[in-house]
Design a protein around this nucleic acid. Structure first.
Lengths: 324, 324
DNA sequence: GTGAAAGCGCTAACAG
DNA sequence: CTGTTAGCGCTTTCAC
């Protein structure tokens, strides 16, 4: 591995001159510049980023924690974040907490150890106090951690209301919603309670079906779907996150229900799977790209020590499909 | 930021002693150890990983390139890789090439600059010569780069054959396969040609429908589905990757075809979306966890300079659903 | 314009 | 068992 000193030696200049050329800083005579560039070429020299990182005390890497990369919502979010952060010259390092409980500790630790410049926290931590003494850039995505850490999320209250209104308009009388909520600090709580309230205000009571929390595999959702229809065969509307609604649609088919006549479905999130199913599923669509852009912007501002808003709420909308 | 020197000063020992304590190396008297630990506690000291990285000339980060993190296959692969690599104490850094053409250059560059210790290359590069002079750990996932870089993939030939046999058994006479292949170095080529050959051997000709390459969005697949049925309304079997098969199923529904009586479907990959659709889609299932484990194992061996196999081929199987 | 020198924070020889 | 010292490879003052 050629170092900057080797280049300097070959070019017959000082290491600092090489550095200036590399970083396009200060003034370097054309003669020296040429000699340096030639030497770099000849030695096939590549600067060592680790030394730079040490000097600058930063890596231009942002850590991202999500429950599960393979989940369509988080997958899309991460993809969008990668692109958004790239514009600010940051790379991403992804950690999933599902199946790896201590991922959260680890990434906070990496922040402390200077391995990453900031964290985008998109999972539902149970150990909020983990973040108490970390006075470094952290942005919370769709989750309240503490009152110091800024948060970005969709307008879930409106999302829940939109869904409720669509159910009402479609003439739904016995709606059921499937929740997977640990506690009210999770913002999913917001749309589910808005959904319930809005319907209730119109004289319709929503059945709450509670799932296990932080479960994302299709087989589990299928079991939930079976259970939902066994316990509540009379329902004529289902509201829940994309994947579980997909599973319920499949179950409705097995039960030979006519969709949307017999039963209506609205999915929350509106990831590609609501469009890839047999039916186009009516969905409340979270604007993933905008969320990612805002999140990227915020973590970068935080790193630069700029002023930021404590809360960014992004508008949400409904996309009508065949199921409601 | 407290440094190792501050700790040493407070503990009244030398920095090297602190280092020994931190790394649990060599012998340190209980008295010194205690003093050091106290000082660390008091100063809230956290070692700076960047300095370590510089010294060791490694970061324990593996770069992963895929076309699209949000794609269900790659999402699952990345999730599995994260877990597999975690066991070897590596973190991952993800890059998608879709929408970011130069991601590939960048990540190779990071390898050169010592920012990452190795690369798992899971996208279909068009610039194979990019890798010619990189004499560092690279593993190719499902893709031939050059004869120096080891490859891991499923047994696609068998996958194609299994699909063909299932189609035959189901009595399919006019199968169509949807490909998205750039050139024969892509291993998708293998299963598609095996599929065609196997059916041909049984007197059945497969129609080839060629999609654009490296396109992964659902809307595109839906357009493809419409086009497929418009051009070839008489087909009674569709074979292709998960997402496009999902789209075709949706189109078949619109055309009121009876599934699987009128038309059969087999999806290649078998990601969760084949199980989340209205139907359980019959699929050739790539063993993502095993692929990820083998890939992780291989890149780690490569980093450690151990001997490795040049090619690892993992068995594949068919999962019967409702569509064939 | 350019070079010498200090230092980012840590590790590992090597004396003692 | 512990301290001194010399780097890892780069950047940046600060003289010249």
């Amino acid at each position: 591995m050629a170092s900057i000193r080797d280049v300097a030696k070959l070019a017959q200049v000082a290491p600092s001159t090489v550095s200036l050329v590399l970083n396009n800083k200060g003034y370097v005579s054309e003669v020296s510049r040429k000699k340096v560039l030639d030497a770099i070429e000849k030695l096939n020299y590549v600067p060592n980023e680790l030394a730079r990182n040490l000097y600058r005390n930063s890596t231009n890497i942002i850590g991202i924690i999500v429950p599960d990369v393979a989940h369509p919502f988080f997958g899309a979010f991460i993809g969008a974040l990668e692109i958004a952060l790239y514009k600010y010259n940051y790379k991403i390092m992804v950690c999933s907490t599902i199946e790896r409980e201590n991922a959260e500790h680890e990434i906070v630790d990496m922040l402390r150890r200077q391995m990453i410049d900031g964290i985008i926290m998109g999972c539902h931590s149970l150990e909020v106090d983990l973040y108490d003494n970390v006075n470094k850039p952290i942005v919370a995505f769709d989750r309240i951690i503490n009152n110091k850490i800024p948060i970005i999320r969709s307008d879930h209250e409106k999302g829940g209301r939109l869904a409720a209104q669509a159910m009402l308009k479609a003439g739904c009388k016995y709606p059921l919603q499937i929740t997977g909520i640990k506690n009210s600090s999770m913002s999913a709580y917001l749309h589910h309670s808005a959904f319930k309230d809005e319907l209730s205000r119109n004289g319709i009571e929503v059945i709450n079906y509670e799932m296990e929390w932080n479960k994302f595999d299709m087989n589990y959702f299928k079991r939930v779907a079976v259970d939902v229809f066994e316990k509540y065969p009379h329902i004529d509307g289902v509201y829940g996150a994309d994947m579980v609604v997909c599973a319920c649609l499949g179950e409705a088919r097995k039960r030979k229900l006519d969709i949307p006549k017999d039963i209506k479905f609205i999915a929350y999130d509106g990831t590609f799977i609501t469009e890839s199913s047999f039916y186009n599923i009516t969905a409340i669509v979270q604007p993933i790209n905008i969320l990612a852009q805002k999140t990227a912007q915020m973590i970068v501002s935080l790193i630069k020590n700029e002023n930021i808003e404590k809360e960014v709420i992004v508008p949400i909308s409904i996309r009508y499909g065949d199921t409601c």
